[in-house]
């Protein structure tokens, strides 16, 4: 099961650039939450703060607190531990090119020293089923490289890879922006199915996508969170003028 996320006074810098300013937010457990906004508004930086990926860049800096479940991720644990509990799917599909499909899915466990072959087999199968890729790849799991799949399949492989370590939260940073419409709709179906079991945070610049998959939506602008509410409210009756301008296409 997923857990909720409590963000308090989160600030992030990129060099001297103050990319996130005073973000306060509660992301509910076992729901999909969408983050929208024009490019450069800080929404990607925000999700990268949720699994401490932001700080992998030497010039980046974060202050404030993020609690995932009962864990303060900047106080109580090391990044490696956080990232095992918070899975991430990136903008461009990034399967490991040297590994087979099977090894890609199993990589999170294998690279952490997990050796039980029988359990691995089960987890790989389950993860590929959960990401709706099993039927397409089950015959050449160990024969084909992850890089030989199509773009949409690669992205679903990356989702399976993230699911295999059984995370509590799944972060998706524009997971469909590099994909064709058919693959995009498959990814959206997947999110729809997965959200009953995981807390999903999805960054998107596609407002229809946010409306289709998410219960909650946050609107980011210039490093601040302008509005956070139920998706229905944001898209029908936003309380902030800037949100309304954005969703009606007056800018961005």
């Amino acid at each position: 099961m997923g857990v909720g996320i409590e963000v308090t006074n989160l600030n992030a810098w990129y060099g001297s650039n103050h990319t996130l300013q005073d973000i306060n937010l509660h992301i509910p457990a076992n729901h999909a939450t969408a983050l929208i906004g024009p490019s450069g508004c800080g929404k990607s930086t925000f999700v990268r703060c949720l699994n401490r990926m932001h700080e992998t860049n030497p010039i980046a800096r974060v202050t404030g607190s993020v609690r995932i479940g009962d864990l303060d991720i900047y106080e109580d644990a090391k990044p490696v531990e956080i990232r095992r509990r918070v899975g991430m799917v990136f903008q461009r599909p990034n399967p490991f090119p040297t590994m087979s499909i099977y090894d890609n899915v199993a990589s999170g466990l294998k690279l952490n020293g997990f050796r039980n072959r029988r359990v691995l087999d089960e987890i790989v199968e389950k993860s590929l089923k959960n990401s709706a890729l099993w039927d397409e790849v089950k015959d050449d799991l160990k024969k084909k490289s992850g890089a030989s799949l199509s773009g949409g399949q690669q992205q679903r492989l990356c989702i399976a890879r993230a699911l295999a370590v059984d995370p509590e939260v799944l972060l998706m940073d524009e997971p469909a922006s590099a994909l064709d419409p058919v693959s995009t709709s498959k990814i959206e179906d997947l999110i729809f199915q997965l959200k009953s079991q995981y807390t999903i945070v999805i960054v998107t610049h596609n407002m229809q996508q946010a409306a289709r998959v998410a219960e909650k939506t946050g609107f980011f602008l210039n490093g601040r969170m302008v509005e956070f509410d139920s998706t229905h409210k944001i898209f029908t009756n936003p309380s902030d003028k800037r949100t309304e301008d954005y969703i009606t296409g007056r800018f961005g």
Partner: peptide, 10 residues
């Protein structure tokens, strides 16, 4: 990034 995101030790 993919490897780091999985919580694999550096």
């Amino acid at each position: 990034e993919a490897a780091l995101g999985l919580g694999v030790p550096n």
